[in-house]
């Protein structure tokens, strides 16, 4: 596979480390009244779609960017690659 890094261009998948669902960016609030239930869902529950999947990849053998890669789990087609930091900001994690 080849991941089109937003800053560095196309890079071989061997340079990256996979983490998982990009939903890991949406970390719950530790002070929420149901924080334990929320963290349980955050830690253990994952969707397993046959199709588009937004997932986190880390450019470990490169510039150390975390990326959000939108990959079709059926065809491996990659339709979008974003810097995870931009996604995190857009998801309201700037505080």
């Amino acid at each position: 596979m080849i991941i089109n890094h937003p800053l560095l261009g196309p890079r071989d998948v061997a340079e990256f480390v996979y983490l998982g669902d990009a939903a890991l960016i949406d970390r719950p609030d530790w002070q929420a009244p149901d924080a334990q239930a929320q963290f349980h869902a955050y830690g253990y529950l994952r969707d397993n779609p046959a199709g588009a999947h937004r997932e986190l990849w880390y450019h470990e053998q490169g510039d150390r960017s975390w990326l959000v890669v939108t990959r079709d789990t059926v065809t491996h087609e990659i339709s979008k690659v974003e810097l995870a930091r931009d996604v995190a900001r857009a998801r309201g994690r700037s505080k």
Binding site: L19, L56, Y58, S65, L83, A84, R85, V87, R93, K95
Partner: peptide, 9 residues
Amino acid sequence: FVRQCLCPD
């Protein structure tokens, strides 16, 4: 991961 994805700013 924490720096970029959880605490981006």
